[in-house]
Design a protein around this nucleic acid. Structure first.
Lengths: 168, 168
DNA sequence: CAAATAAGATTAACATGTTAAATAATTATA
DNA sequence: TATAATTATTTAACATGTTAATCTTATTTG
């Protein structure tokens, strides 16, 4: 019985499920991301920020004031989430809204003075953590990982566009 | 002015922030995961399952009945989330609980007949998607990506243990 | 120009992530 | 053995992810 089962394998096919369903690609990416986030979250929490709130502050500091739509795009957040996040940051006066001339639907989100201050206090810590990761893992490997991740996204997005265009 | 600024760069140091804060490691991992999940989520949704609910069903199918603790570990879910998820799956009769002799705190989570049936209907689609990703991205690159992700987690976990042991 | 459409943003409703607190059963210890 | 500490799980409270519905303002069109 066993020999018959073995005989079917040697075809040198790659297994249908690389490593069963556990250790699947989504799972591996999730684990990796969690491991990385564990490095950053504690210092954010000291300052009372969630990772998403930090993303927003960071984006505003780097790219300046933005309408919600751009901010959502840059922070990779959906509008409903961002809407709540900005309300939160606004209540704590880390950001404010500035009217846009000619369109009353939209407004610019602006990083306040205390928002900038918060950024200045957190940024060095994040950078330090980042350097530590680079040290630990190796600069070359990290670059390679970036490239692979980017290419993976590109390939999957290509396919997505194909499917989209077919249904149009 | 400009020449002075340029003169400080050539030290051949790698930039402190690989690609600014955008395109950071957490962000890249998130984007990659989202891109991958976009492949799987639609078919899950057809069957009324979230990715997390699917993880639970998958784990039960693969590893058999488990106490909640093991299930949480295998599915990479925190207990409060899993607790709610199992309640949901229980209400829909995809799983049930079986008493454990000798410990009334814990119970085994069991995949029901309709749970197994659901698995059988979804699994082929997932496998198909997975194969498509492998095709698109390349088997070798995928393996390389797995290795890098695993090693990243190992390295960061090592560091974590160091920090933990210091504080004990 | 008035009605229909579209665009930007928010709200609603539900599922999950996350930390802390609560509950109940079990084990360890004085 | 009564009590304290531990273990397994759940609940609470708040933030986010996600889809659909709503609301307001702009734009398009008949």
């Amino acid at each position: 019985m066993k020999s018959a089962a073995i005989k079917q394998l040697p075809k040198r096919e790659r297994p249908a499920n690389l490593r069963g369903f556990d250790r699947s690609l989504p799972m591996s990416l999730l684990r990796a991301r969690e491991a990385v986030m564990k490095e950053f979250i504690p210092s954010l929490k000291e300052f009372g920020l969630t990772p998403q709130q930090w993303r927003v502050i960071r984006s505003l500091e780097q790219h300046g004031e933005q309408p919600l739509g751009k901010l959502a795009e840059n922070c990779f957040l959906l509008m409903p989430s961002l809407s709540r996040i900005v309300q939160n940051l606004e209540a704590r006066e880390f950001v404010s809204r500035k009217a846009v001339a000619g369109d009353q639907r939209s407004s610019m989100i602006v990083l306040s003075a205390s928002g900038k201050d918060l950024f200045k206090r957190i940024a060095p810590r994040s950078a330090e953590r980042y350097n530590r990761i680079t040290e630990r893992f190796g600069y070359g490997k990290l670059e390679l990982l970036y490239e692979l991740l980017e290419e993976l996204v590109e390939r999957l997005d290509d396919e997505q566009e194909l499917l989209d265009s077919r249904s149009n």
